[in-house]
């Protein structure tokens, strides 16, 4: 069971309070109907699935209930950082340096 830092509660808490919510920074297009079939396919189905740092969304569902973003290393299963929804994607190289 992991410990996850909720950026809204500013506390590191048991994973049991959280739920995974897919890859982060996949924004819903403003006008989906304007997208080609290929673009829509990419939005719906194509995900990064990296080996290493992964930008992903979590929800503190049994806590403050907020969705937030995280960078988790899929090899070590370690969270490199978490940040609030809407904040820009952090620079991975800087994160790895800080490790």
């Amino acid at each position: 069971m992991l410990l996850i830092h909720c950026p809204y509660c500013d506390e590191t808490l048991p994973e049991l309070e959280f739920a995974y919510a897919g890859e982060a920074h996949v924004d819903r297009p403003a006008d989906p109907s304007a997208l080609s079939d290929e673009e829509w396919r990419d939005f719906l189905f194509i995900r990064a699935n990296p080996k290493g740092p992964h930008f992903e969304r979590w929800r503190h569902v049994h806590g403050c209930a907020r969705f937030f973003n995280a960078v988790r290393d899929t090899v070590s299963d370690r969270f490199l950082m978490t940040y609030k929804a809407g904040e820009p994607r952090p620079d991975i190289s800087k994160l790895e340096e800080a490790q």
């Binding site: 919510a21 924004d27 819903r28 969304r57 929800r59 209930a65 907020r66 969705f67 929804a85 809407g86």
Partner: peptide, 8 residues
């Protein structure tokens, strides 16, 4: 619903 409201 919360997901759409909070993030989109």
């Amino acid at each position: 619903m919360e997901d759409y409201l909070q993030t989109e």
